[in-house]
Design a protein around this nucleic acid. Structure first.
Length: 162
DNA sequence: GCCAACGTTGGC
DNA sequence: GCCAACGTTGGC
C-alpha cells in the first residue's frame, strides 16, 4: 500500500541444552533444523521472510525465558538433516524431490536481559500472546508487533533501536 | 518425574 | 474418515 516492506514477528523455541542463544551468538547465523511439526514447517515455508524479527526462546529450563532477538536471514529451504541417515532428525520419507521438512536461517542480532515465562504471564499487555495460551507447544509461532515490542522492553531493549 | 495437551499413525 | 493407541512437547 505504502511501498513499505511488511515485516513480521516470530518466536522460536530452542531447548537450552540443545542449542542455546550463546551458541547462536558464537555462530552468528544458524539453520533452524529439526522442526518436525507441519504447522511450524508451514510457517517457515510460507510466512517467514528475510528481515522478519525473531524472539529466541529457551525452553526446558527454569524458568523458560526469552534470551535474545534474531532476524530471518534465509527464507525456507529443505531441511537437509531429514535426508541424512546419520542425523537424529533423519526422516526416511524425505527425498530430494519431496524434502518434506523445511528450515530457515536466522542471525543473532541482540541479546536482551532474560525475560522469564512467569514475568511474561504476569504482564497484562501480553494478553493473548500465543506462547501463553494453554496447551500451546508450537516451536515456531507468530508474535504481534505490539507483543514483540513489549517483550523487548521487558528485556531492556527499545525495539525502535533495532 | 509427572502429566496435560496435542499430533501422528494405522487398523478398520 | 473415524478413533484408539501411542509418541512428543514442555511447563511444573
Amino acid at each position: 500500500m505504502h511501498g513499505e516492506v511488511m515485516v513480521n514477528y516470530w518466536l522460536m523455541k530452542s531447548e537450552l541444552d540443545v542449542y542455546p542463544w550463546s551458541q547462536l551468538v558464537e555462530d552468528k547465523t544458524t539453520h533452524w533444523d529439526g522442526v518436525r511439526n507441519y504447522q511450524a514447517r508451514n510457517i517457515m515455508r510460507d510466512d517467514m521472510k528475510n528481515g522478519d524479527w525473531v524472539l529466541f526462546y529457551h525452553s526446558n529450563c527454569k524458568p523458560p525465558h526469552v534470551a535474545g532477538v534474531a532476524k530471518v536471514c534465509k527464507e525456507g529451504y529443505p531441511d537437509f538433516t531429514a535426508q541424512d541417515p546419520e542425523s537424529k532428525y533423519f526422516d526416511e520419507k524425505a527425498t530430494p524431490e519431496n524434502p518434506r521438512w523445511i528450515m530457515v536461517d536466522i542471525e543473532a542480532i541482540k541479546e536482551i536481559e532474560a525475560v522469564g515465562l512467569p514475568e511474561l504471564r504476569a504482564n497484562p499487555s501480553l494478553e493473548g500472546m500465543p506462547l501463553l495460551q494453554r496447551g500451546q507447544r508450537l516451536s515456531v509461532q507468530p508474535v504481534s508487533a505490539e507483543h514483540f515490542a513489549v517483550v523487548c522492553q521487558m528485556g531492556g531493549l527499545n525495539s525502535n533501536c533495532l
